[in-house]
Every structure is written in C-alpha cells, then in structure tokens.
Design a protein around this nucleic acid. Structure first.
Lengths: 147, 147
DNA sequence: AGAGATTTTGATAATCATTATCATTTGGAA
DNA sequence: TTCCAAATGATAATGATTATCAAAATCTCT
C-alpha cells in the first residue's frame, strides 16, 4: 500500500497542515505509476478502486485539486475538452509540446522547446509578458498512418 | 434584419437542403458583427435576443453546430475550458496564435506563423503527419501590466 | 493507549452547460 | 393555398463537477 518516494509527499502534507490518508497516497501513486498515459478523472477513479474499493469519486476530485494546488501534479489541457494529469517537474511542464492523434487519440510528448525566439518577438511586439505557453499539434500518428 | 454578405450563406443553406430562417441569419450576423470579441454561447444568446426576444437557447446551440459543420465558423479552443467562435477564413484559422491574459482574460490574436520549421522537424522525427496546431501564450497583457 | 478536536471521507443532492425529446410552427415546393 | 418535412421553443434528460453533511479517520495532547 505504501510506495516509493512518497516520504516527501507525506512531509509536504504535514507541513501544510493536511492529514496523511491512504486515499491521498494511493491516488498519487496511481498517477505516478501511469506517467505517459493521459488519464481522466474517471480512469484514475477506476484504478484507485483496485486498491481501495470503497473510495468515492468526490475524494478523487478533491485529491486531484489538492495535488494541483500543492504543485505536485499539473492538469494539462489538450484542447477539445480533453486533458490529462502529469507529475510536476519543477515548473518545467511547459518545456514540451504535445502531438495529438486525431484517429486513435494517442498523446505523444515532444521534449523540446523551439519557441524562445518567437516568445521574444511576441513579447516585444505586443507588450505582453509571457508566463507560459501551450503548443499542440493535431494530426495522424505513425501507427495510424500505416493502417 | 437582413445584413451584408449573407447571400452566400442563404445559398449555402439552400444548396445543402437546409431552410433559411430568421434565427439562422441573425445568429450568424451577431457573430460577424462581434469579430475580435470572444463570445461564448450564453453571450451570443443574449445578443440574439435583442433582435429576436423569443429565441430559445437550444436554437443557438443547434445553429452554432450547423455553422461549424458548414465551415462558416470555427470553434476555437482557448484551453482551460474557454473557447470562442470566429468566422472561418478558408481554413486559415491555424495561421494565428492567441495571447491569453491571466489577469483580465483578454484574448489577442497574433497574425503570424513561425512554426513551419518546427513542424518539419517534428513530423520527420516523430513520423507524425501534422494537420493543424494550436499555440497559446499565457501571461499578462500591456493594460494589466501598467496597473 | 485513549479522548477529543478537527479534518477527511463517502453518499448523495445540487449545479451548470449541453443535448434530446416532442408538440407546434414555419419554409418553401407543388 | 395546401401540405409535408424541417426547424423551433419549452423543457426534460444527461454528464461532469461541486457542495453538503453525517460518519469515520487522523493527529495532538495527556
């Protein structure tokens, strides 16, 4: 029931005056063990129920909001009403882009950032202070192309 | 009640076997007259009621879906559950980006596209056929900066 | 370890946006 | 003008998320 690298999570909860509960540990564990997939709330709920059959969906919503507030996870908006949760990597989540396959829905991460020059141009031309960006490419992944 | 440049809209409706109604003409007119603003369904509904007090919200939803299907408007996903409708410009809607102010919510269009080189890199490296992209910058607009 | 104060949880009601249903009205061809 | 299919408006249904609240669990203090 207890998993790797959650000592710091426990400490963070205690430091903020929150209580350490089985539900919170298991929900974070499910997100950690499924990095790379893009799970929605219902899918996280189903996976948590494997370890904790009596868990309520409201607890999943509450815990996801808590983890987001604590900067442990980020809610990544994929557009078109789709999103996923992923572990926060020291605020570096904006350093990658997403390829979203319109056929199978697969989401691939592009671990690069070529936008610095464009950001400089835009922030001077539009007098806009850029804090973050989101870049998504929609199309057809290699697997679906070959079918 | 009748407005400029809706001849082609009438023709398109007739060509597709749809009927020309006051509701459809007024809803498209409201969207045309408010280009640049980013209206959601409720705001469009309120503006349509000025000319057509008895209109139902369901008709607004139905007509927006119809206009989208006919490629007359595009639903632009701004992320974080926000979106706007804009007139389709021959499929060139992806040729601009959006600056979204986190303070006042203002949406500014950036009428440029610097992503061609990046698209080439990504499509070869990831074997992904890119049909469209979405690029959004989040931050603070000039008006909010000066406050 | 046990009692007590407080937080968290699970069940479920409430909410909000959107979609479906259906009787009535309307557009447009004959 | 008549007639039928399509469109509309009112409202019920839906689905996702949030709020409520009594019961259970956590953690502090002894």
């Amino acid at each position: 029931m207890v998993m790797e690298n959650n000592q710091s999570f426990k400490e963070k909860l205690i430091n903020k005056g929150y209580k350490v509960t089985n539900q919170r540990e298991i929900i974070l564990d499910v997100i950690r063990k499924n990095e790379g997939k893009h799970l929605d709330t219902e899918e996280i709920y189903d996976l948590v129920k494997v370890s904790l059959p009596g868990v309520g969906i409201a607890t999943v919503y509450r815990t996801l909001a808590l983890l987001e507030e604590m900067d442990i996870i980020n809610k990544i908006d994929l557009g078109a009403g789709r999103w996923k949760y992923e572990i926060d990597r020291n605020g570096e989540s904006h350093k990658h882009h997403h390829l979203i396959c319109s056929v199978c829905g697969e989401v691939t991460e592009v671990e690069e950032d070529f936008l610095e020059r464009l950001e400089d141009l835009i922030s001077s031309k539009y007098d806009f202070l850029i804090n973050d960006h989101s870049l998504k490419f929609y199309g057809c992944c290699s697997k679906c192309k070959s079918k």
